[in-house]
């Protein structure tokens, strides 16, 4: 039992390190002056992409654990969720701080009539809300029903983020298709589980 706990703890830390690793890599590139021709764009795109992929990975842990029949596979879900939230906040911070350079008036002006910004902001607000309520305390305070319902909004955040990405794509939609396919599979798995379809296994 204790060895099992140690392994799960190790697995959780490995997942956390994987989610933090891109930040270390970016920091090293920034220090070495290797952020490319346009460092602001590199930071903007990398933080955004990591946030989205991490969100998909977080959402995938549950279905994967159920499919495999090993509940512990979902153990890093909360940590990955919080990291997703931090990456998304960092993404917004790069946009506001480095791209717009805190030109508040212009930043607000840019929001007006820019659908992609609203979709991105919507996703961020949901993720921040879920990040804040991710603690045991909030889970207890809200009660299991409300809390679970609230955290299902993570799928809404993922769809909003996907639209945010799609609206800025030119010509080559391959990555958008890959992301859409991945998210569609996750939503299908979620719905199948909700409907109690056959493949659901007992979590040990």
């Amino acid at each position: 039992m204790t060895t099992r706990r140690i392994w799960i703890r190790l697995y959780r830390w490995l997942a956390l390190m994987a989610a933090v690793a891109p930040a270390v890599w970016l920091a090293w590139r920034a220090w070495a002056g290797r952020l490319g021709a346009d460092p602001v764009e590199t930071l903007l795109h990398t933080t955004g992409s990591v946030a989205f992929v991490l969100l998909l990975a977080t959402l995938a842990l549950g279905p994967v654990a159920r499919l495999a029949g090993y509940g512990w596979l979902a153990a890093p879900r909360r940590w990955l969720g919080i990291l997703t939230c931090l990456w998304a906040a960092g993404h917004f911070g790069v946009w506001l701080g480095l791209d717009q350079f805190f030109a508040w008036g212009f930043a607000w002006q840019e929001f007006q009539g820019r659908a992609y910004l609203w979709w991105g902001a919507g996703a961020l607000v949901i993720l921040l809300m879920l990040g804040v309520t991710s603690t045991d305390g909030w889970q207890r305070r809200l009660g299991p029903g409300v809390w679970t319902g609230l955290h299902r909004l993570s799928y809404v955040a993922a769809v909003a983020a996907l639209i945010h990405i799609h609206l800025q794509t030119r010509a080559d939609y391959l990555l958008v298709y890959v992301y859409t396919g991945g998210l569609a599979v996750l939503i299908a798995a979620r719905l199948a589980a909700a409907l109690g379809l056959g493949w659901r296994k007992r979590i040990s």
């Binding site: 021709a37 346009d38 460092p39 602001v40 764009e41 480095l98 791209d99 717009q100 350079f101 030109a103 212009f106 002006q109």
Partner: peptide, 11 residues
Amino acid sequence: SRERRIGELGR
């Protein structure tokens, strides 16, 4: 209405 000069901060 604005642009980022490659390599610069802000617009």
